[in-house]
């Protein structure tokens, strides 16, 4: 009996110890950082692959496209945009570019539009399919002319969390020039609704949804994003999510 008790208790201890040991290691900064190496490895292997997100047909479009982000902006600036139908909205392109500029919504609408019916994969696990129409980001970048020291494109957004921290995201130049990376103006054939990021929302269908920043106000081309907010290149990245969100 003693032998059986010993065997049973060693197995129970080994299994029951998993969650507490894991949690203790998770709270250790050194180990936590070590675990994060997987993100760098995945980014190195997949971060700049040229594959295209799968395109769907009109019949595949989700009837309901979830809204699962920071709240829709309620600033006086955004309220004013809603009042005038975004006629006063301009997209700022700044930073390491030859020609910093302000692009009106009307001008964005006159640029070459691209429609792609792609799946939006949320980091939480859900997926929805939508038809996104907009301007390829590379067309906007060509207008502004990134300088030689340009390495990342940062998207500054109008939404804020309950602490007042603004949303932002970033892509490296290869991801920004990916043919399916677009500044979307329409969802399913209609101007993007406020809850979905009106008037301009980034769409990066080769990565998880948090990369597809809503309510984009400014595109800032930088050599490094270390000096911005938490330094990890995005709102969710600053809270521990991977910068390369292809996994």
């Amino acid at each position: 009996m003693k032998r059986r008790l010993f065997i049973a208790s060693s197995i129970a201890a080994a299994l029951g110890g998993c969650a507490p040991i894991g949690t203790a290691l998770n709270d250790n900064p050194g180990f936590h950082h070590f675990l994060g190496l997987e993100g760098s490895l995945d980014a190195a292997l997949l971060g700049n692959t040229a594959g295209l997100a799968r395109q769907y047909s009109l019949a595949d479009i989700s009837k309901h496209f979830p809204v699962d982000s920071l709240p829709t902006p309620t600033s006086t600036r955004y309220e004013a945009f809603l009042e005038n139908g975004f006629r006063s909205y301009t997209l700022a392109v700044a930073g390491a570019v030859e020609r910093p500029m302000q692009i009106s919504l009307a001008r964005l609408e006159r640029m070459r539009q691209q429609t792609q019916i792609t799946r939006h994969d949320c980091v939480e696990g859900w997926s929805a399919i939508g038809a996104w129409t907009g301007v390829p980001l590379r067309e906007v970048l060509r207008l502004a002319g990134p300088r030689r020291d340009a390495r990342y494109v940062v998207f500054r957004c109008m939404d804020r969390d309950d602490q007042g921290t603004p949303y932002y995201e970033s892509l490296d130049m290869a991801q920004a020039y990916h043919p399916q990376t677009i500044l979307a103006l329409q969802l399913n054939g209609r101007p993007i609704q406020p809850d979905h990021g009106a008037p301009v929302r980034l769409r990066v269908p080769t990565q998880l949804g948090y990369k597809s920043a809503k309510w984009v106000a400014e595109i800032q081309i930088v050599g490094s994003f270390e000096h911005l907010y938490g330094g990890k290149g995005g709102y969710w990245e600053d809270q521990g999510y991977e910068w390369y969100a292809g996994i």
Binding site: A19, T23, N26, D27, E38, V123, E124, G240, E242
Partner: peptide, 24 residues
């Protein structure tokens, strides 16, 4: 429940870190 998950408290970002590291 918490006694079945790593980490025990709810944290998707850290759960992903553990999952993808140990997937390798």
């Amino acid at each position: 429940p918490g006694w079945l998950t790593i980490p025990a408290y709810q944290d998707l970002a850290d759960g992903r870190r553990w999952h993808f590291f140990f997937a390798w």
